[in-house]
Amino acid sequence: MAETFVLVHGAWHGGWCWAAVINQLERLGDRAYAVDLPGHGMNRADRAKVTLDSYVNSVAEFIERHDLKDVVLAGHSLGGITISGVAAKIPARIKRVVWVTAMVALDGQPMVNPAKSPLAAAADSFPERSNTIEMMGKEFLDGLTNDMAPALKEYVMSALGPQPLAPLLAPVPMAPYFATGIPSSYIVCEDDQTPVPGAPNWHPHFSSRLRNPTLKFVKSGHEVMFTHPVECARALHELARGD
Rank of each mutant, 00 (worst) to 15 (best):
A2T: 15
F5E: 06
F5P: 08
V6H: 10
H9F: 04
G10F: 08
W12N: 14
G14T: 07
G14W: 03
G15Q: 00
W16K: 12
C17T: 11
A19E: 13
Q24T: 10
L28F: 10
L28P: 02
G29F: 08
A32Q: 08
A34R: 09
D36R: 09
L37K: 10
P38Y: 03
H40C: 13
G41A: 09
N43H: 09
N43R: 13
A45G: 01
T51W: 07
D53L: 05
D53G: 04
V56Y: 00
V59S: 09
V59Y: 05
V59D: 04
E64I: 13
R65W: 00
H66G: 10
H76M: 12
G79M: 06
G80M: 04
T82Y: 01
S84D: 06
G85I: 01
A87K: 08
A88N: 01
K89H: 09
P91E: 05
P91C: 06
R93T: 11
V97L: 04
V98Q: 09
W99F: 15
T101C: 13
A105S: 14
A105Y: 03
G108V: 11
G108P: 07
Q109T: 02
V112F: 03
N113V: 08
P114Y: 00
S117P: 03
S117G: 08
P118M: 09
P118D: 11
P118N: 13
L119S: 08
L119G: 11
L119H: 05
A120Y: 01
D124I: 00
D124G: 15
S125I: 03
F126R: 15
P127N: 02
N131V: 09
T132L: 14
E134S: 15
L141Y: 08
L141T: 05
L141R: 14
L141D: 08
D142S: 13
L144I: 06
L144A: 15
T145C: 15
D147I: 12
D147T: 14
L152E: 10
E154M: 08
V156F: 11
S158D: 04
A159G: 00
A159H: 08
A159Y: 02
P162R: 10
P164G: 12
P167V: 13
L168Y: 10
L168M: 10
A175Y: 01
A175P: 06
Y177F: 15
A179I: 05
T180S: 04
Y186V: 08
E190P: 01
D191F: 02
D191H: 12
D192T: 12
D192A: 12
P195K: 03
P197Q: 02
P197F: 01
P200D: 14
N201I: 00
W202P: 00
H203P: 03
P204M: 07
H205S: 13
H205L: 00
F206I: 06
N212S: 15
N212C: 04
T214I: 04
T214E: 15
L215W: 03
K216D: 05
F217T: 14
F217K: 14
S220L: 05
V224Y: 11
V224D: 12
T227W: 03
H228Y: 01
H228N: 13
V230F: 11
R234A: 12
R234C: 03
L236R: 05
L236V: 09
H237D: 15
G242A: 03
